[in-house]
């Protein structure tokens, strides 16, 4: 049964399935073993330097097989996270990556200095240069290879542990951003955060969201994310964590065969908690079916066997 566990980007994943940032609460009742034993790790909700109220107005809108969100990073800030939340989360035996999100370099340095003081208690950092729902920071770093490298280097000055960089599909050249993160010291890249979309309320004749745009996730984006995983896995040597619309073991396997070492699951949990167990058990079954001793043997299988274009 250990055939699917592995160390990915420095994080020991018993199951190569990670709960994506912003999709799971801190409340105790949702951290019971019956649910979380099927998750290899969890990424915290985005954390900012200061408490942040997030976006006003409508925040979610259902789309065909997907969901648009404009949450805008509502959170209690790094000080409260480290004072209260970190201890809560550490009790449950699931590795926790801190999703760190910043407006500017000064914020990032402040947060990383705080986190460095608690380094022994933190399993990893997921650097968020990809949230599309803020007016400043976040995605404006991740669309640019140079800025992504700067942010990654800056984290590395304070942090030598696992560092995943979560990419944005809005980058004109996503593999170039992934390479920049790799050169700057990332342990892994997560491909990818949400796609920019929008919705119009035709009853009122106005955009649904105050910021007009919002991030699309859910099964609707899976083929788009799979293509990005394929491209990024071909561009870097560090592990790639596939993220975007995964809702079944077969989706997870496709991500792995495209070159991912693990997957993140988010919107699928809104639909069904059972997706974690299904992917966990489905990947174990797939490893057996393919007759491999480690799931890693299936990584990039489709890359290695496909006819070159």
């Amino acid at each position: 049964m250990s055939s699917i566990s592995s160390v990915v980007g420095g994080v020991d994943l018993k199951v190569p399935v990670v709960i994506a940032s912003g999709t799971w609460p801190y409340e105790e009742g949702m951290w019971q073993e019956d649910l979380t034993r099927h998750a290899g790790a969890i990424c915290s909700k985005a954390i900012t330097r200061r408490p942040w109220p997030g976006n006003p107005g409508a925040r979610v809108w259902e789309t065909p097989s997907g969901i648009l969100n404009s949450i805008g990073l509502q959170n209690e800030g790094i000080d409260h996270f480290l004072d209260v939340r970190l201890n809560q989360l550490r009790k449950h035996g699931v590795p926790v990556l801190l999703n760190v999100s910043m407006e500017n370099a000064e914020d990032l340095d402040y947060m990383m200095a705080c986190i460095a003081g608690r380094a022994d208690e933190v399993d990893g950092i997921e650097l968020n240069v990809s949230c599309p729902n803020t007016d400043r920071g976040c995605m404006s770093w991740g669309v640019d290879p140079t800025l992504t490298a700067q942010a990654t280097e800056q984290v590395r000055r304070r942090w030598d542990g696992p560092l995943w960089v979560k990419l944005t599909p809005q980058a004109p050249d996503i593999p170039a951003v992934a390479r920049a993160a790799e050169s700057a010291g990332a342990s892994a890249v997560v491909a990818v955060n949400t796609w920019l979309g929008m919705a119009i309320d035709t009853k009122r004749g106005v955009p649904v969201f105050n910021r007009r745009v919002a991030g699309l996730s859910g099964p609707a984006v899976f083929p788009l994310a799979l293509r990005v995983v394929w491209d990024v896995a071909g561009a870097v040597k560090i592990p790639v964590i596939g993220c975007g619309g995964v809702r079944s073991a077969d989706d997870a396997l496709a991500m792995i065969m495209a070159g991912a070492s693990a997957v993140e699951v988010g919107a699928a949990l809104f639909s069904d908690f059972g997706v974690l167990k299904e992917i966990h058990e489905g990947l174990e079954a797939a490893a057996q079916r393919w007759g491999v001793t480690s799931l890693a043997d299936l990584r990039a299988k489709a890359r290695n066997t496909s006819v070159s274009a």
């Binding site: 912003g22 999709t23 609460p25 925040r59 259902e62 969100n69």
Partner: peptide
């Protein structure tokens, strides 16, 4: 309110 997850995870249904 419109809801995403219905379990406190997404913060999609907040009110001031």
């Amino acid at each position: 309110r419109r809801m995403g997850c219905g379990m406190g995870g997404c913060f999609g249904c907040v009110v001031d």
